[in-house]
Design a protein around this nucleic acid. Structure first.
Lengths: 188, 188
DNA sequence: GATTGTCTACCATTAAGTAGGTAGATTGCT
DNA sequence: AGCAATCTACCTACTTAATGGTAGACAATC
């Protein structure tokens, strides 16, 4: 027995991250999974339901990764670097961030999805703020700067680097930007 | 006589930056301009033609702004800050970057548009690299770092900040990220 | 008189979503 | 254990609306 729902989520994520939310259709997804278009509606009645499930699964994966980083990496810069490497996979596979793909649609995006991706970013910001605050406390991160502002700056840099370096298909350049970012966080 | 072509470009830019390239249609544009759908095809035979014209106009506006900044602002950090303020308008108006909106579509984007937006980013990177190199030479920018890598990092940070802070409708947060970015470029 | 800009009216294709049905597994009841 | 009811997951066939794009007519203008 193959888990069709999981397969749908996986292929849909690849499609959205590769071409945007408005840029893929149930027909595309049906072809990718090898199922009929109508059968998708059995699992995800509307495209909005599918989008929301996509964001939920994506956010859950990230949440687990963030927890693992906090557990396994001791210092602030090391944690931010590990966080940045989560984005690197996207550059290597030619896939953007799911939530960036949705965020681009802006006003056209169903309210529910807009809320969900805002929560996604808010979660990352809260995690980073805590990480940076801890780093400042233990001296691994340069003091003086507001951790909340620093967190926004970190997410922005990585989201932007993923967006641009995917276009240029340049993981090396992404690594370079990550290095500049992390170096700037260390105490001088 | 109203310049319909210019009006089409203006409204189309707002639509693409607000909802993405796949997220707007000729019907939307026709309604926005107050013209019939078929008339748009007279000015821009295909959607790709329109997209290319959009990128060309957008790139030309940026090119003029970059030249003005180089002329009017003397030091490296000041120039980068002025560059960053070009993005701020987008956050304030709730509009993303045109080229980011196109870049998200990735593999689904017509090859021609992909080339055009790659050139857009390459132009900015070259300008910034020169600006940063000059800044290092005159001592206004911290030395040691590779200007090309630094340029990629600057564009990434601003593109990412525009993407995220538009979602949060927070020009203040964008300003905060810009401040962190520019401060990090100054010599310690 | 040719070109420019707009129109109405259309086309083929694709979009998301629905209706209704079928085969097979699971469940509850006697 | 036997059996009917239900549920799950899929199907074909369809609807309605929207998509990008075309054909050809009509005025105004150069």
């Amino acid at each position: 027995m193959r888990d069709t729902r999981a397969e749908l989520l996986m292929q849909a994520e690849t499609l959205v991250r590769g071409r945007g939310y408005a840029g893929f259709s149930y027909a595309d997804l049906a072809a990718a999974v090898g199922i009929r278009k109508a059968s998708i509606h059995h699992h995800f009645p509307t495209k909005i339901d599918l989008g929301a499930a996509l964001v939920a699964a994506y956010a859950a994966r990230y949440a687990a990764a963030l927890e693992a980083i906090r557990r396994d990496v001791p210092d602030g810069p090391g944690r931010v670097e590990a966080y940045g490497r989560l984005y690197l996979g996207g550059v290597e596979q030619g896939l953007g961030c799911l939530c960036a793909a949705l965020a681009i649609e802006g006003e056209a995006l169903p309210e529910r999805l807009r809320r969900d991706i805002a929560a996604f970013f808010a979660d990352h910001l809260a995690w980073l703020e805590a990480i940076l605050r801890e780093g400042q406390a233990d001296g691994s991160v340069r003091g003086g700067a507001d951790p909340a502002a620093l967190a926004r700056y970190v997410v922005a840099t990585l989201e932007g680097a993923l967006l641009m370096e995917r276009l240029f298909a340049s993981p090396a350049a992404f690594r370079g930007t990550l290095a500049v970012l992390v170096d700037g966080l260390r105490p001088q």
